[in-house]
Amino acid sequence: MDDERISLNLQVNGTAYHVDDAWYFETLLSVLRYRLGLTGTKQSCETGSCGACTVLLDGRPINSCVALAADVQGNVTTIEGYSPADGSLTPLQEALVAAGDVQCGYCLPGMVLAGSAFIADHPNATDDEVREGMCGNLCRCTAYGSLITGIREASKR
């Protein structure tokens, strides 16, 4: 079993982490949540289908549940690193929670990070652009209306 264990180096939220005794097949999601304690990244589908585990790798959104931790090169930003240190909300986070109902909120960290990358590329986005660009992030509680509104408003320049 020992030959299945490896050491990893990861750059997460600007900090260099060294992880010993990880399984060689561990996902980035698993290392973030269960070895670094960064549980803001949510585990849900484990097949890259729902976007709840979205993190940014050098600013681009990826599904951390299907990224091999040992393969990851670059700077990882999780919701802990994205959120302002003073406990406030970014304009995108504020727009998402102001636009209507947050319900269970399990999708929200992934929605925020995917949304941040989306609005960087889509100033003044239309509803349909949001639908197409964000359809990889599932929400089971809402009908997406408030999420679409929030992301659209946050994209205004």
Binding site: I79, G87, L89, G105, V112
Partner: peptide
């Protein structure tokens, strides 16, 4: 607003 909305958005 939900009392937990900000905490949910911040992860």
């Amino acid at each position: 607003r939900r009392p937990d909305a900000a905490a949910k958005a911040r992860g």
